[in-house]
Amino acid sequence: MQPKFSKSCRYSASVLACLSALCASQTVSAKDIPVTISWSGTKPDLVSIQIPGGMSDFDYDARTQVFSSTLPIDDGQVEVRTLLVNYSGTNHPFYLKVNPFLPKIAFRLSMTPAKSCLKSHIDRVAKKVDNLPDAMRAVLQAGQLLAIDLPDDCGDLSGKAQEAKYKRTVQLAQYSNGLFQTGQKLRSEYLESVPKASRRRVAAEVAEYENEIDSLEAVQLAATRTEAQYQRDFDKAAAINDVLLQRAQSDEQLETLYKQQGLTINQLEKDGRYLDARAASIRQSNSSGP
């Protein structure tokens, strides 16, 4: 004998069933990306990274002198996560644009704190660099100079230090293929430090830098997609292509930037069909193999 349900109860049950089905279809698996950070100069007191629900401290291995952690990220997501490096009570924030296709994140921190904000120190960090470690060193050093309190602070040279910090962070983003981002706070601080008369010109310059950094996302993802194709991992390549397509469709500015890299929506859709077909054919040939 079948149990009898009222009409409203049957309706509720069907809604619940639909919701659970919806939830099941929306369930996304998270990938843990290993993050290792080594250091030279002065050891950071603490390194922590933003995870869903808060900040997570890195473990430190005194033998290898490496900070390590894992960064959980949902499939198909491109997110900006905050990384805090603490030297003597001062937090130096970094913003990492991460996606689940990154195999790992590893870099080296380098900084020797200065006692006072000398012109020579600012000149050193204001110089253009030509590699990622030097950019990292300059960003940390500039941040440390700006954090020095009275009476040994930067004073009138704060603007120059702020400019150096922003421009070296831009270089850090360039040399890391867009892994490091500049961040809204740094941009605002830089613009505020500029005299009002030249603020508009600098704002335009900053917008150009930011566009360039944003377009690195497409370059990096497209390169990973190509690498996956080269390794005949068409499932991964198709997944990356999906992310590229979603992002291009979700944001007009990104769409324009993607277009500049030759990644139009049409092209991405076409690539998606091709990659899906290749992935399916490989799966089929694997299943029908000996």
Partner: peptide
């Protein structure tokens, strides 16, 4: 003082 020590 900063005008001196910063460039010392």
């Amino acid at each position: 003082a900063r005008r001196f020590w910063q460039y010392s």
